[in-house]
């Protein structure tokens, strides 16, 4: 049954966005969607930021103070997360970059005028030019995939290749167990299967990390539009204010999970 919706002073009807973003151009094998343009915009913001950072002096100006405060806050947060100050300093560039990127990506759609740009296609359809980058599963999945591959790299670098691989394929433990006795040997076989499950859990990290961010941001956008079609004035404003909180918290959660995965990958095993 189709419910008839009325467009009036109190009801603003918009179409609920599709899960997939709108692809409007193709450059070679790469498709340019309306989330890609947002990513370009974020990159532009980063380039402007890099321009400011390059002009930093020993005697800080007001802008420099803000940047340095942000960096020190993130560094303290990461150090607390990873456990030690040296490890924190080593990983802050990665975790901090992800955190700042996600903060901008999550909060950019809230800026006025950003969602006002529309794109007209030849067939008379309209699409927003800048759709929130994290409301597309491709963005979050790419980020999560890159993060997990990077964590394997860090694990190999910190523990050595064979040492790191032995977490997943525990041939050494089985060999040692059978040397001790039959009972120990069979227990070590269970450990071997647990090691195989570790590989699956590594893959599941990618899915959970990307789906968490995507789901939160996309659900927030859909609910905003549903609320706008119910009461157009007061309630959506509150919900959009909530969106700032959701965006900040999700960026922090993603970054802190990256930190936790880092400390898990570089943990020295005690014997």
């Amino acid at each position: 049954m189709q419910i008839e919706r009325l467009n009036s002073f109190l009801h603003v009807n918009e179409e609920i966005p599709q899960i997939s973003s709108f692809v409007f151009a193709k450059v070679g094998p790469f498709s340019i969607a309306n989330t890609t343009t947002t990513i370009f915009l974020i990159t532009l913001i980063f380039i402007v930021g890099a321009f400011f950072v390059h002009r930093f002096k020993l005697k800080p100006s007001k802008v420099q103070h803000v940047f340095e405060m942000l960096y020190e806050t993130i560094e303290g947060f990461v150090a607390q997360l990873v456990g030690s100050k040296e490890k924190g300093e080593a990983v802050t560039p990665y975790v901090g970059a992800i955190m700042v990127y996600l903060l901008i990506a999550n909060l950019l759609p809230m800026f006025p005028f950003i969602s006002s740009f529309y794109l007209h296609t030849g067939s008379g359809e309209e699409f927003p030019l800048f759709r929130g980058a994290t409301t597309d599963f491709n963005t979050t999945f790419g980020l999560a995939l890159a993060v997990i591959i990077f964590m394997q790299f860090f694990g190999v670098k910190e523990q050595g290749f064979f040492n790191y691989i032995s977490h997943f394929l525990q041939f050494k433990h089985v060999y040692r167990g059978f040397k001790k006795g039959i009972g120990e040997g069979f227990i070590s076989i269970i450990g071997f299967f647990v090691g195989l499950i570790e590989i699956i859990s590594e893959l599941a990290k990618i899915i959970s990390l990307s789906l968490r961010l995507f789901g939160n941001m996309f659900a927030h956008e859909v609910l905003t539009i549903i609320l706008l079609s119910a009461f157009a004035y007061f309630v959506p404003a509150l919900w959009m204010g909530m969106g700032v909180l959701v965006g900040v918290v999700q960026a922090i959660v993603f970054a802190s999970l990256v930190g936790v995965y880092y400390s898990m990958a570089t943990k020295k095993e005690e014997h």
């Binding site: 959970s208 789906l211 995507f214 939160n216 659900a219």
Partner: peptide, 21 residues
């Protein structure tokens, strides 16, 4: 706690993604 709450919420978010799919 905020981080923990956001992680717990993931289960509901998975369900929500399934809802939209």
């Amino acid at each position: 706690m905020i981080i923990g709450v956001a992680m717990t919420e993931t289960t509901a978010i998975f369900a929500l993604v399934a809802f939209f799919i």
